[in-house]
């Protein structure tokens, strides 16, 4: 089905802005309101909009099923390992990354990588839910 040209051109302008805002919310999760879940939801919404405007084949070339499963698995395993280690390291006095100055992007130890993992996971899972909803497969 051919989409309207106005929709495509507006999408070219708006979708990068939406993705940039999602990345901003994820990266600044430990400094300002937001975090992994909120930013991941915004990123997932941009993926859904891309699917609706440019069709199924466009996003399949960009973000295939294999890549989707790979990102979900890697971020889930990374999250569980790092989160478990962060619980254990305070109890057993294991080494952990430096805290840094409050207010910097690279500060507060494990929270930034955890936020990035949660953001990727939530974005992919939202797209999977939408994809199952619209055509019964990923």
């Amino acid at each position: 089905m051919e989409r309207d040209i106005i929709l495509k051109e507006i999408g070219k302008i708006l979708i990068p802005l939406v993705q940039l805002f999602g990345i901003y919310v994820i990266i600044n999760g430990h400094l300002s309101p937001g975090g992994g879940f909120s930013g991941g939801t915004i990123l997932g919404t941009s993926l859904i909009i891309m699917h609706l405007i440019y069709g199924e084949n466009f996003i399949k070339n960009l973000y295939s099923k294999k890549k989707l499963i790979l990102i979900i698995s890697i971020s889930l395993i990374f999250y569980t390992l790092i989160k478990g280690y962060s619980f254990l390291s305070t109890e057993l006095n294991l080494p952990h990354p430096p805290i840094g100055n409050p207010g910097n992007i690279l500060s507060s130890g494990f929270i930034l990588p955890l936020n990035i993992a949660v953001g990727l996971l939530v974005a992919s899972i939202f797209y999977v839910i939408f994809s199952i909803f619209i055509r019964d497969e990923v």
Binding site: V25, P33, G34, G35, F37, S38, T41, I42, G44, T45, I48, F126, I129, F130, F133, I134
Partner: peptide
């Protein structure tokens, strides 16, 4: 404000889309 971002993204975005579908 944390909940506000999540509510705007999930409640107004994803839920509406799934309902329309």
């Amino acid at each position: 404000p944390d909940l506000a971002i999540t509510e705007a993204a999930v409640g107004a975005g994803v839920t509406t889309l799934l309902f329309v579908l």
